[in-house]
Computed example of a mutant assay.
Amino acid sequence: MCGRFALTATPDQTATFLGVDEIEPFPARYNIAPTQPVLMTLAGAPRDPGSNRSDRTAVLVRWGLIPAWVKDTRDFPLLLNARSESAAEKASFRAAMRHRRALVPASGFYEWRQTGGRKGQAYWIRPAHGGLVAFAGLMETYAEPGGSEMDTGAIMTTAANTDIAHIHDRMPVVIHPGDFSRWLDCRGQEPRDVADLLRPAEPGFFEAIPVSDLVNKVANTGPEIQERFVASSEGDAPQQKAAKPGRKKPGDDTDQMSLF
């Protein structure tokens, strides 16, 4: 699964990577967590053939997809991830898979090696070549009973490749730049036409860096959570002293952005 990730590139770098005209300013985000706003890119209405502007749009959505048919969100689980093997058939994702496929830009993601059923060593997993990566995403607009609407989304996952399998059995689906247009084209490409893109990243694409347990706490939002952790001896717990409560650090709270 993918339960935390980061986006630390500048808005201009992100816009260029995604092929959108511009993106509203945002801060570097080192510890993006469920229910927080995440950036997604979708294909918009076709542009005039003579226009040099992109037809892609960048939007903020709440991480945790809510299908349009849900009556009471209190009785519905938070859908952070969508299994790529079954998304096209699942009621929760079927409509989004057909009509609202998206790209989720990221600098990398975090995963934890399970030890005895408990969360153990944390890893910062980033592209070995550096730069940005795009995860396959799904978006759904949920209309609340009161009439307001909220854009929500999920990240698609697949079986882990050989670089990640020793940490976790799932990983986000990576869409490469050459496949962006095909993945986003929900008018001309049925889910079955893009099923070949829902595969593990090739071996060597990611590198996994052990980090401390600072990433476990959502309030820790600085670059120090990505620093390599080196245990002093075998079996040492991967722990560092967390920031003291009440001491606001750059990137806390408002820097994580808000949709509400």
Rank of each mutant, 00 (worst) to 15 (best):
R83H: 13
A195N: 07
I164T: 09
L198R: 04
V211K: 05
D213M: 11
E144Y: 13
A15R: 00
S181F: 05
D236W: 08
G120Y: 01
P177S: 07
G222M: 03
M156G: 07
K248A: 14
K244F: 09
G19E: 00
Q226G: 09
A201T: 06
R94D: 10
R98V: 09
I66W: 01
P245M: 08
M150D: 10
A143I: 10
R247V: 15
M97H: 08
F93S: 04
A219P: 07
F260A: 12
M171R: 06
T115H: 15
R247Q: 13
R53H: 12
W112I: 00
E207L: 14
A165H: 11
W183K: 04
A82C: 02
A242T: 09
M1N: 12
A58N: 02
K241Q: 14
D255V: 07
L132M: 03
A122I: 00
F206G: 11
E85S: 11
A165F: 07
W63E: 01
A58L: 00
E234A: 14
R4L: 02
E149M: 09
F26N: 08
W112F: 10
I23H: 07
F17W: 03
L138E: 01
L259P: 12
G137I: 00
P27V: 12
L60W: 15
I125F: 05
A219F: 11
M156V: 03
V38H: 06
G204E: 02
S92G: 10
G117W: 00
L184M: 04
W183D: 09
W183R: 02
D55T: 10
D169K: 06
N161K: 05
S54A: 03
A159F: 07
I66H: 05
D151P: 12
A160Y: 01
G188F: 01
R199A: 15
E111M: 10
V133W: 04
G19V: 00
D255E: 13
P200Q: 07
L198C: 07
Y30P: 05
T41A: 12
I155K: 09
